[in-house]
């Protein structure tokens, strides 16, 4: 058990190193001069030179790599070109809204999606199942921002129930927080709910065809307990996996949702960086988001040992 956890923790290292190499290579291996591209069409030679030295592009490539990894290990994500502030500081400043939005979304999505998926699997082939699955496909297909704008149009502009823009911290204004987070949460949850519902249904359906479900019925067990005691517990591993993998979708969606609702989080930071051509910020955020994703998925893998006694290598 302990050795499994140790090994699982250590196994994230190669993946993190690969991510770091990909991010490093992205800037250095693209054709043409990245400094020129980043600086944009109207840049002066002086600006280009400044970007080149900021990113360390003027050094030999192996020196660049060693320096870069060294800085990374110390938590140094570089200096923003536009504001001249450390990227790590900028990220820390913008962390709270994104974290809050992600947490509310994950909770809301799981609470909605898992029961929906189980229900669809249990009633598989019926109209209940079909309606749930149609909603799931809709959720996959609706671009986050289109849903966001539809919600703003309806509940913000027409009915005027909820604020359409901005973010309030739960620590200073709990009521404002709840009112401001409702629409972004629903918007961001859509695709996540679609994904988790679909996988939950598929996993439960697969488990329901297993021999031990037949055994449970042969014992005279009632359907509800067959479903929850026997089926759901066995389906927990794939469901937890998809919740973890879905984090990647969530991060992408958060960037867009924050733009639609004008929430000053990490997503806005990305978008501002795109507009200002502030590459170090983009690079830093890619690393932070990827490492978060890797760590969350590692934690989920470790959590499997509680669902499934067989996983104890």
């Amino acid at each position: 058990m302990v050795s499994f956890i140790v090994r699982r923790v250590l196994s994230t290292l190669p993946v993190m190193i690969i991510v770091a190499i990909v991010v490093f290579a992205m800037l250095r291996l693209t054709p043409g001069d990245p400094a020129v591209v980043i600086a944009g069409d109207q840049a002066t030679a002086e600006q280009i030179a400044r970007i080149r030295s900021n990113l360390g592009l003027d050094l030999p490539i192996h020196v660049q790599f060693v320096t870069w990894i060294g800085q990374l290990l110390q938590g140094d994500l570089g200096i923003s070109i536009f504001t001249n502030m450390p990227v790590s500081t900028l990220i820390a400043q913008r962390l709270e809204p994104t974290l809050m939005l992600s947490l509310t979304t994950i909770c809301f999505s799981v609470l909605v999606a898992v029961p929906l998926g189980v229900w669809a699997a249990w009633r598989s082939g019926t109209w209940t199942d079909r309606v749930i699955m149609v909603f799931s496909v809709l959720g996959f297909s609706f671009p986050v921002f289109v849903l966001g704008y539809l919600l703003i149009y309806e509940f913000g502009l027409t009915l005027k129930w909820l604020p359409t823009q901005g973010y309030k911290s739960p620590f200073s204004d709990p009521v404002g927080f709840v009112r401001s987070i409702i629409m972004p949460t629903i918007t961001l949850s859509m695709i996540y709910i679609a994904l988790v519902t679909r996988i939950t249904r598929a996993s439960v359906l697969e488990v329901l065809s297993e021999d031990y479900i037949r055994t449970a019925r042969a014992k005279g067990q009632i359907e509800r307990k067959v479903l929850f005691r026997h089926a759901l517990k066995n389906a927990a591993v794939p469901i937890a996996t998809i919740i973890g993998i879905g984090i990647a979708l969530l991060i992408g969606g958060a960037v867009v949702t924050e733009t639609v609702f004008n929430i000053p989080g990490l997503g806005r930071l990305v978008v501002d960086a795109i507009l200002r051509r502030d590459y170090p910020i983009i690079q830093g955020l890619i690393l932070v988001f990827s490492f978060t994703y890797i760590i969350i998925n590692m934690l989920i893998d470790i959590a499997y040992t509680f669902f499934d006694p067989r996983i104890r290598y």
Binding site: E210, D211, Y212, R214, T215, A218, R229, H230, N234, P309
Partner: peptide, 15 residues
């Protein structure tokens, strides 16, 4: 009561 062919799969692995 009933017993089945496949003892490997007839028992719930997580209980």
């Amino acid at each position: 009561a009933m017993i089945f062919q496949e003892p490997m799969t007839a028992l719930n692995p997580v209980l």
